[in-house]
Design a protein around this nucleic acid. Structure first.
Length: 599
RNA sequence: GGGGGUGUAGCUCAAUUGGUUAGAGCACUGGACUGUCGAUCCAGAGGUUGCGGGUUCGAGCCCCGUCACCCUCGCCA
C-alpha cells in the first residue's frame, strides 16, 4: 500500500447506479458500510451521502483481493470497476442500487480507520452522550444527513422567498451592548476597553428596528441568538431565528408574509397544504385551552364550572371561589379507564405548576363515581350536561384562587393526557395565530409591570386610553404563530414615536435616565424619523423539528450542547491560559465552593 | 438552585434476597468458507460495575457524598 494516496476522480455517487449503467466502467468513493468476507468472494457495501452500492472482489486478482480482505467498517476507500447486472435471485430489493453491483478492478484505501466506537447503522440505538462525543460519526447516519439537508432547504427557501419579496438580508453585530432586560446575557470581555463587556445578542431586535429607521424598509436575517438560560428538550442556549422586520405595515401584512412563507415551506418540503390560519385572541386561548400556545389537535377544552362549584359543599371548591378564584374542568374521553394509581400520579405531577392537587371523578351509568363524586351530588346532572360527559369519561378539575394557576394546570394537563392516552394522530398540522396579547402583566415580586413581549411592542391604539388607568387591560399589537401547541414564532408592531415609547418605559418602571443609558440610541432613532414598522422572528430550529418530526432540538443542530452547556466533542467551555485572562484584565474569583470547603 | 430518571466490556444490555471466577449480542483479533446483503461456522481477547467513602465475613446490588447525561420546575423581555 502507498503511504499516502491522492484522491482520484469518481464517476458516480453510491446511490446512482442502475441497470442502465451495466457494462460501464465506474469509480466510486466513500466509506465501508459493511464487509462480508466469504474467503473467496468478498462483498463490500460502499456508502456516500447519496446511498450504498455493493462491490464484489474476486480471488483472481491476488493483490486486489488481499487489499479488500483488510477492509473494515468505516474505512474510506476509492474503487474502480465495472458495473454489472446481478444474476437473477441475487438482486437486493432493499437497496436502490440493488439490481447492480461493481466488479472491482482497483482499490485504494484512502483512510484506514481505527475501530470506531459505533457505526452509522448502529447510531440510532446508541446513547446520545456517545453520539455527541463522536458527532462526526453520528452525522454519517442517513437520518441526520436528511435533517441537515432539510435545514439547508428551509434556509434556502427562506432566502429565495424574501429575496423575491424585496427583502434585504443584513447582518447585525454579535458583539453587542448588554442590557439587563430579558434573558441572562452571554458576556464577552473587552481587551481594548478595560472592565467593559460585550453581550452576545439575545436577538437582533434593536438593530432591526434601527434598520427600519435607516430606511431599509424590508429586512431579514437568519440570525444566531444567545440566551444564557437553562436548556430544555426544545431550547438551546445558542439557537437560530429567522428575523424579519418591515416598514409601513400593519399586523396583517406581517402575518400574511410569514403565513405564506410557512405555506411554501410545508408545501415544498412535506407536500402539505397549509390552509388560511385561524386567529385566536390571547384571552380566548387562555380561557379555552389554558395556554397562550394551544394545541388544537385534540379537544379537552377547559370549561368554567365555578357557578356549579359554588353549589357544592366541597371546601376546596368553595374556598377557592371565596378567595376570588375559580374552578374549571376538562373532560377526558375514555379517561375512566385510568386507574387510581394513574390519576394519583397526575395529581402529583400537576403540583409542579402550583396546584394543590387534582380532584377527579368518573362518569359511570349516567352518574359520577369515585374521586370527589360524593361532593358533586347536588350538581351531578348539571355538571354532566355542561361537560357533555358520557359514560367512560374522566373529569379533572383545576381549582385555585388564581386563575393563572388553574389555566396552567389544566393547560399542561390536557397536553400530558393527550400524549399519555395516545389521542394525537400523526400527520396533523394545527396552525393558528394567537393575537391581542396583553401589553404588560403585573409582576407581584417586583411590584411593577413587565412586558409580555418586549418593551418596544406597540399598544393597540384602541386601548391607548387605558394606558394610565388600567395598564393590564391594554392589548398589544403582538402575535405568535403556533403549530401543534408549540410556539414557532412571534412578533409585533413596534412603537415608532418617542412619546409612546417613553410612556411605556415609565409604565415598566424604567426611569428616563435608565432609558437613556440603556436604549438612548433607540430613543434617538425614534426622534429622527422612524417609520411605522413591525416584524417577527421564527424559530428556525423548531421549524425544522416540526418538519422532521422530532422533539429533540439537538437533532436539528449539527453541533449542539448538553444541558450543562458543554460541547461533548470539543469539550468547550474550558479553562484558558492565565495570560489570556491578563490581557482581558480579568482575575478569577475563588469559587464559592472552595470557600465553603476551607470553612 | 429544586424534583425525577440513567450510569456494568468499544456499543446495546443482563446479572435471584447482598454470596463462587460479573454474562450475552454486535464490534474487535485469529482461523475456515466463491453469492452474501443483519453472511455463516470455530476459537480468542476485552471489565477501576462513573468516581470517592462507609456498612458487611462478603457490595454491581445497601448507605453517604460526588460527577456526567436525559426529562422537568424555576429561568427563557
Amino acid at each position: 500500500m502507498k503511504e499516502y494516496t491522492h484522491m482520484q476522480a469518481r464517476t458516480h455517487h453510491c446511490g446512482e447506479l442502475r441497470s442502465e449503467h451495466v457494462n460501464q466502467t465506474v469509480a466510486l468513493a466513500g466509506w465501508v458500510n459493511k464487509y462480508r468476507d466469504h474467503g473467496g468472494v468478498i462483498f463490500i457495501d460502499i456508502r456516500d451521502r447519496k446511498g450504498i452500492t455493493q462491490l464484489v472482489f474476486r480471488p483472481s486478482d491476488e493483490k486486489l483481493h488481499a487489499n479488500a480482505d483488510r477492509l473494515r467498517n468505516e474505512d474510506v476507500i476509492w474503487v474502480k470497476g465495472t458495473c454489472i447486472a446481478r444474476e437473477e435471485g441475487m438482486a437486493n430489493p432493499k437497496l436502490a442500487t440493488g439490481d447492480i453491483e461493481i466488479e472491482a478492478s482497483e482499490l485504494e484505501i484512502l483512510n484506514k480507520v481505527d475501530t470506531p466506537p459505533f457505526t452509522p447503522d448502529e447510531a440510532p440505538k446508541v446513547g446520545e452522550e456517545t453520539r455527541l462525543r463522536y458527532r462526526f460519526i453520528d452525522l454519517r447516519q442517513q437520518r441526520m444527513q436528511k435533517i441537515l439537508k432539510t435545514r439547508h432547504r428551509v434556509t434556502k427557501l427562506m432566502r429565495d422567498y424574501f429575496d423575491e419579496n424585496e427583502f434585504l438580508e443584513i447582518e447585525t453585530p454579535f458583539l453587542c451592548k448588554s442590557t439587563p432586560e430579558g434573558a441572562r446575557d452571554f458576556l464577552v470581555p473587552s481587551r481594548l476597553q478595560e472592565s467593559s463587556f460585550y453581550a452576545l445578542p439575545q436577538s437582533p431586535q434593536l438593530f432591526k428596528q434601527i434598520l427600519m429607521v435607516a430606511g431599509m424598509e424590508r429586512y431579514f436575517q437568519i440570525a444566531r441568538c444567545f440566551r444564557d438560560e437553562d436548556p430544555r428538550a426544545d431550547r438551546q442556549a445558542e439557537f437560530t431565528q429567522l428575523d424579519v422586520e418591515m416598514s409601513f405595515v400593519n399586523q396583517d401584512d406581517v402575518m400574511d408574509c410569514i403565513e405564506n412563507l410557512c405555506r411554501k415551506l410545508w408545501k415544498d418540503i412535506l407536500d402539505v397544504d397549509v390552509p388560511k390560519l385561524k386567529r385566536m385572541p390571547y384571552a380566548e386561548a387562555m380561557d379555552r385551552f389554558g395556554s397562550d400556545r394551544p394545541d388544537l389537535r385534540f379537544g379537552m377544552e377547559l370549561i368554567n364550572i365555578s357557578d356549579l362549584a359554588e353549589k357544592t359543599d366541597f371546601k376546596v371548591f368553595k374556598g377557592a371561589i371565596a378567595d376570588g378564584g375559580l374552578v374549571k374542568a376538562i373532560r377526558v374521553p375514555g379517561g375512566a379507564s385510568m386507574s387510581r394509581k394513574e390519576t394519583d400520579a397526575l395529581a402529583e405531577w400537576v403540583k409542579q405548576f402550583g396546584a394543590g392537587g387534582l380532584p377527579v371523578t368518573k362518569v359511570e351509568g349516567g352518574k359520577l363515581a369515585t374521586g370527589i363524586a360524593k361532593f358533586l351530588e347536588p350538581i351531578t346532572d348539571e355538571l354532566i350536561a355542561k361537560m357533555e360527559a358520557q359514560d367512560g369519561d374522566l373529569i379533572c378539575f383545576g381549582v385555585d384562587k388564581k386563575s393563572t394557576v388553574v389555566h396552567r394546570v389544566l393547560g399542561e394537563l390536557r397536553v400530558k393526557i393527550a400524549h399519555q392516552l395516545d389521542m394525537i394522530k400523526p400527520g396533523q398540522w394545527e396552525w393558528l395565530w394567537v393575537v391581542d396579547f396583553p401589553l404588560v402583566e403585573f409582576n407581584e415580586d417586583e411590584n411593577r409591570y413587565d412586558s409580555l413581549h418586549h418593551p418596544f411592542t406597540a399598544p393597540n391604539p384602541e386601548d391607548m386610553h387605558l394606558l394610565d388607568s388600567d395598564p393590564a387591560k391594554v392589548r398589544s399589537l403582538a402575535y405568535d404563530i403556533i403549530l401543534n401547541g408549540s410556539e414557532v414564532g412571534g412578533g409585533s408592531i413596534r412603537i415608532h414615536d418617542k412619546n409612546t415609547q417613553s410612556k411605556v418605559f415609565s409604565l415598566l418602571g424604567i426611569s428616563e435616565e435608565d432609558a437613556k443609558v440603556k436604549f438612548g440610541f433607540l430613543l434617538d432613532a425614534l426622534r429622527f424619523g422612524a417609520p411605522p414598522h413591525g416584524g417577527i422572528a421564527l424559530g428556525l430550529d423548531r421549524t425544522v423539528m416540526h418538519l422532521e418530526n422530532t422533539t429533540n432540538i439537538r437533532d436539528v443542530i449539527a453541533f449542539p450542547k448538553t444541558q450543562n452547556g458543554v460541547d461533548l466533542m470539543t469539550m468547550a467551555p474550558s479553562e484558558v491560559d492565565p495570560a489570556q485572562l491578563q490581557e482581558l484584565h480579568l482575575r478569577l474569583a475563588p469559587s464559592i465552593k472552595a470557600d465553603a470547603v476551607k470553612g
